[in-house]
């Protein structure tokens, strides 16, 4: 029984330790999570359908602590990402990937956007990160690597996932980040769009 008691104490202690360790932010990782000021919007101006004030909460919430982390914003990573061809120049317009005249490279690559917090005012629901699969100049698949989870968030994240993700999802249909906001999951939708935008930025 003594050993059982020890084991139970160990369980409680290590669970607490793990949570506390993850709770204290590390500088490098925080930088990733935080938005990079105003991200370049490949969907074009006015493309953001979220008219609500809290539409772009993550961007609005560029907290002071963002400053030291700013260098690691998605924009500079552009130069570091290995890319098979010079399709870079053809982007910036939402329809560009489809209308490009350059012969598309038929290689498939996976591009992961920077992660964003799904935020609604002061409430943070979780972390959102999107990965797209690009074949030539087309997005052929999208998957959220991380979505808020726990409680109702599971339901909302499921809704977001089912409408955006996959080869038949809205991302692939629209080929841009100009997605319809999933009702009831505004914050998550917006964070998804931000991460998607970052990924598209990086890919083209």
């Amino acid at each position: 029984m003594r050993r059982a008691f020890l084991a139970i104490t160990g369980l409680a202690a290590s669970t607490t330790a793990l949570v506390v360790l993850k709770g204290s932010p590390e500088a490098t990782q925080v930088a990733q999570n935080l938005p990079s000021g105003q991200p370049v919007n490949p969907a074009g101006p006015g493309a953001d359908p979220s008219a609500e004030p809290a539409a772009d909460p993550a961007a609005a919430a560029s907290t002071p602590s963002a400053a030291p982390g700013a260098p690691s914003s998605p924009t500079p990573t552009k130069t570091t990402t290995a890319r098979p061809s010079g399709t870079k120049t053809t982007t910036k317009a939402p329809s560009a990937p489809r209308t490009t005249t350059k012969a598309p490279q038929s290689t498939t690559r996976r591009v992961t956007g920077a992660g964003f917090d799904a935020k609604d005012g002061s409430e943070t629901y979780g972390y959102v990160q999107v990965q797209i699969v690009v074949s030539g100049n087309r997005i052929v698949d999208a998957v959220a690597l991380s979505l808020p989870s726990g409680g109702e968030s599971d339901i909302h994240s499921g809704d977001v996932r089912s409408s955006y993700d996959g080869s038949g999802g809205e991302v692939v249909r629209k080929q841009n980040a100009n997605l319809n906001t999933v009702s009831g999951a505004t914050a998550t939708s917006n964070a998804y769009k931000q991460s998607l935008r970052a990924a598209i930025e990086q890919a083209f």
Binding site: L11, T15, T16, L18, V19, L21, K22, G23, S24, P25, E26, Q29, V30, Q32, N33, G115, D117, E123, T124, G126, Y127, S146, S149, G150, G151
Partner: peptide, 27 residues
């Protein structure tokens, strides 16, 4: 859990409680 949870992501009480719940669940 450790690898999948970004550092500093446990900001609210709810997130912390759920995270502890997940750890104990895995255990």
């Amino acid at each position: 859990w450790w690898l999948g949870t970004p550092a500093g992501s446990l900001k609210s009480t709810a997130a912390t409680l759920s995270a502890a719940g997940r750890i104990t669940g895995l255990v």
